[in-house]
């Protein structure tokens, strides 16, 4: 019951992103879609993933998007004309993507988290264990990459001020 409600919200939001001409409305549809998705995650008992979905995507990234749309004051624009070739390419790409999704969905076991992995206390613990156990080295590499990027931004913005 709840699943269909939130899935409908997520899908309607996704449709809204492409259908609306006003960029702010599109951005808000995306937010609605993220919220629906987060609700679905929480429905699967993956609290941490659901909450991070809201915190990172809806709460931070989309706010920045919206901020920039509003600052630049983009009017509802027409965009480039869609040619037949572009339409064909898009359809092909969409079909490939749907095919991939279908393969993944078929290969999954579907059951509540507790029955699949009874030893898991909560998804936060499990994610932490994996990140800082099995995948410790990649996490460190990504962390250093992000740190370098952050420092780079600080250095660049400093120079611009002077």
């Amino acid at each position: 019951m709840l699943f269909y409600l939130f899935a409908a919200i997520a899908l309607a939001g996704g449709l809204g992103v492409v259908a609306f001409r006003n960029p702010v409305t599109s951005a808000f549809s995306l937010v609605a879609s993220f919220l629906g998705l987060a609700a679905l995650f929480i429905h699967l008992n993956a609290f941490l993933v659901g909450v991070l979905q809201v915190l990172v995507y809806a709460g931070a990234i989309m706010v920045l998007f919206l901020f920039i749309i509003m600052l630049l004051d983009i009017k509802s624009d027409e965009g480039p004309k869609i040619t037949k070739l572009m339409g064909l390419g898009a359809a092909l790409l969409a079909m490939v993507f749907v095919g991939m999704l279908w393969r993944v969905t078929v290969s999954l076991k579907s059951a509540p988290l507790e029955t699949l992995y009874p030893e898991v206390r909560s998804d936060a613990h499990e994610i932490g264990r994996l990140l800082f156990g099995e995948y410790f080295f990649p996490v460190q590499v990504v962390g250093i990459l992000l740190l370098v990027a952050t420092i780079g931004v600080v250095v660049l913005s400093r120079r611009a001020v002077r």
């Binding site: 809201v54 915190l55 709460g59």
Partner: peptide, 9 residues
């Protein structure tokens, strides 16, 4: 199980 994170989100 993610109380403070939920509040921030």
């Amino acid at each position: 199980n993610a109380g403070p994170l939920f509040i921030f989100a």
